[in-house]
Amino acid sequence: MTRREIFLDNVRKNKPKSLPLPAQFEPDRNLFADPVESFVRMAETVGTKVLRVNNETAVRDYVETELPVKGRVISPMEVLAGLAEPVPPGLPHMLQDCEYAILRGRIGVAENAAIWLTDQDMGQRVLPFITQHLCLVLAEDEVVALMPDAYAQIADDAYGFGTFIAGPSKTADIEQSLVIGAHGARSLTILLMNRNASRGADQLMFAGHNNHMSQ
């Protein structure tokens, strides 16, 4: 018998009689009134800086004027063409001196401030981890309340790699002292575009006097 057969044979011999999969769990949604506000608050508690911006143009403005960077800035986002280096193909090791990576997230989760993105958003899988600092761009209407909502959206998406990122890399392995910047990014900034911005409209100019209002 192959190892596979031995393995499955042992499992079959020992498994109990089948129990049903429980009915789909319906989560309590009374966790918060406003998912976006909760997302922002939660992000800040996990060590993330959140900046509210109008739209992708404001993202570009931010990168142009505010990014305190010496060194490589890398982003696959088209709107940042000319400001940030596109993700180089080839060996991922080439990204080792990346100072700042700016990536477009797909889904934000209010209950834990995690942002979902896939390898299609990264260019190179290692980029959000190997970069010294990470910036994720998300639109307010991409924020969902709970993890089950996120998976309802992900559903059967095909990706090679996807990850939820909630905050900068951290550890508390030494005496439970929280240290930011373990192996991954030392900081995470979320550029949160307002509700209409992601749909390409930029009529909401009332917030325009302060494109990167810190929350």
């Binding site: 996990v46 834990n112 090679g160 996807g162 939820f164 905050g167």
Partner: peptide, 15 residues
């Protein structure tokens, strides 16, 4: 006591 770990990585295919 964290709402989620910093990274929850889903490996579907090798790069």
């Amino acid at each position: 006591g964290q709402p989620i770990t910093t990274y929850s990585s889903h490996f579907a295919r090798p790069r």
